[in-house]
Design a protein around this nucleic acid. Structure first.
Lengths: 176, 176
DNA sequence: TATTGTTATACTCTATAACTATA
DNA sequence: TATAGTTATAGAGTATAACAATA
């Protein structure tokens, strides 16, 4: 099954390894972010908030400490007003609570309530179980390799993306 | 840099390999699909259509043959009316053209124009160059492994996602 | 004056429903 | 009656701009 724009018969010369990665990434990206899996896990978590709001809840839960609105926005890669809205939604559902920062009256620190933490755990558990099942029949070596390589790729991509903002998008060394 | 909801200090027991993959996937997913990289590549392509429209153009270009609207919708994983709109947009810009199917008067086959094909090539070239640069300093073995494992992961995930619709979301064998 | 957060607003992306034309 | 495609409409998701409060 090839749903990707770059997986077809035509391809650039001598870069097939790279070429093979991109369409898969796009495919995975679509499937995971817009797909039914997330919805399924949210159903399992048993809460009815919008997907972005749940993403904020997860971020807060796994951050392990209260975060300001600005930090949340950065972590989930959205703009501040958007983070505000999601936090408000979670607050209304009783999934997060605000605690003022004694040192700075402007900031409000957000942390999950017990209910929120439990919901986040249920969600994570569902997702982990699902992915575990998907790669269950893989050789252990492959699973380890994938984790290692994907982690490195994500880090390198993230680092390079930051440069995209600086210079007007010069590709990294070795680029076309 | 850890922007993911699942990469924090808390984690499930005994499944760290899987656990490590998911947040990276989410991070990559965000960065690639909503990020500046795609915009950058589109700028390089020199056309001004919406991102989803360009995705359709790429699909058509790398399909290597004319596609019906329905096929396009399936490939880019959207609903048919949405595909219609994107095709219309591309048509207006002269990037794709319609050719009727002589065997069936209902279908209209879509294919890129020369302009469209060139734009798609420029886009792909930019993206390939960028990714090539990102992994340029990797050992060749790692690059090959990543391509292989990511491909398999995408296939397995896609296959399992199909099952999510069938049974009411039972996790695959080995799941939690 | 700079920073944190909020409100108000608009734009992008995608889906559902209703319709037309051909098979 | 079923299928390919379109039009019209509605809804999620996200961003920009203007504002309030604190530093």
């Amino acid at each position: 099954m090839d749903t990707s724009p770059l997986g077809g018969p035509k391809h650039a010369d001598g870069q097939d390894g790279v070429l093979a990665v991109m369409p898969r990434l796009a495919q995975l990206s679509n499937a995971v972010s817009r797909g039914r899996l997330v919805q399924h896990a949210m159903d399992a978590a048993g809460v009815t908030v919008e997907r972005p709001a749940f993403s904020v809840l997860l971020t807060l839960h796994f951050a392990g400490k209260p975060l300001r609105v600005k930090e949340i926005a950065e972590k989930v890669q959205v703009v501040q007003p958007h983070a505000t809205r999601q936090v408000q939604q979670l607050e209304r559902r009783g999934l997060v609570r605000r605690i003022g920062d004694p040192d700075d009256g402007r900031v409000s620190l957000i942390e999950p309530t017990d209910d929120g933490a439990r919901a986040a755990d249920r969600y994570a558990h569902t997702l982990i179980g699902w992915f575990t099942g998907v790669v269950a029949h893989w050789p252990e070596q492959d699973r380890d390799d994938l984790g290692r390589l994907l982690t490195r790729l994500a880090d390198d991509v993230t680092a390079q993306l930051a440069h995209l903002d600086d210079d007007t998008a010069a590709p990294p060394a070795g680029g076309a």
